[in-house]
Amino acid sequence: MIRLSNVQKTYAARRGSEEHTALRGIDLDIAAGEIVGVIGRSGAGKSTLIRCINLLETPTSGSVVVDGTDVTKLSKRDLPLFRRQLGMVFQHFNLLSSRTVYDNIALPLELAGASKAEIAEAVNPLLPLVGLEEKRDRYPAELSGGQKQRVGIARALSSSPKVLLCDEVTSALDPETTRQILNLLKDINKRLGLTMVVITHEMAVVKALCDRVAVMDGGVIVEEGLVDGIFANPVHDTTKSLLADEFVEFRAGQSSNQSSDQSNGQED
């Protein structure tokens, strides 16, 4: 479904910043229907990597083939059409504050020139899927973080994409809401057979959601494989230390359970 071959990305030097290479030759194959996690610490290049798939960032060299098309060769005119086949969900939701839940979810269809009836046909079934029927006419400012992310997910799904790109989608959420959002994504993957690329810095997200994982450090993929294998037998130091973080977080999470329970009540 998605094949990255020797993808490099270098940001040119500007006033006040040196030339910076974010990706140093990335090779990654993602099969249709698969959920692939890309994990790494901040600065590892994972955000750049996911943005190279929908060309929000243009790779300096290498090729990105999505569904048989080398998308790095698309013209400026064709690029928006290609992007409509991919949905993207963001860490900070990026919802329009001036639009209701319904109108936010409708936006990708509106951009594609869909009629009111077509929009209703696509958006109405998504509201129950993400559990937001009652919030249909609310504005984002009236929603909790978890609800906002549900809108973000529904919006990414509204144009019936083949691929869902998830950029740190649970990093701004508390543990219980994170669990709910991950379950929702898993459910969507099963029901719709979507291919998903999941960027995260948390091993727990990989474990709960992904089939396969690629570990990034310093702009390269240092380790890649099935999630079970990587968890059972991590080879690279970065993987080991990311797994060690998880253990620490797990213990810290247990001791702070009581305080987080109170905030859970407001979620969803």
Binding site: P80, R83, H92, L107, L111, R155
Partner: peptide, 12 residues
């Protein structure tokens, strides 16, 4: 982030 989201949705 909203500009990026719109572009990711295929906005011209």
């Amino acid at each position: 982030g909203l500009i990026e989201a719109a572009q990711a949705m295929g906005a011209r």
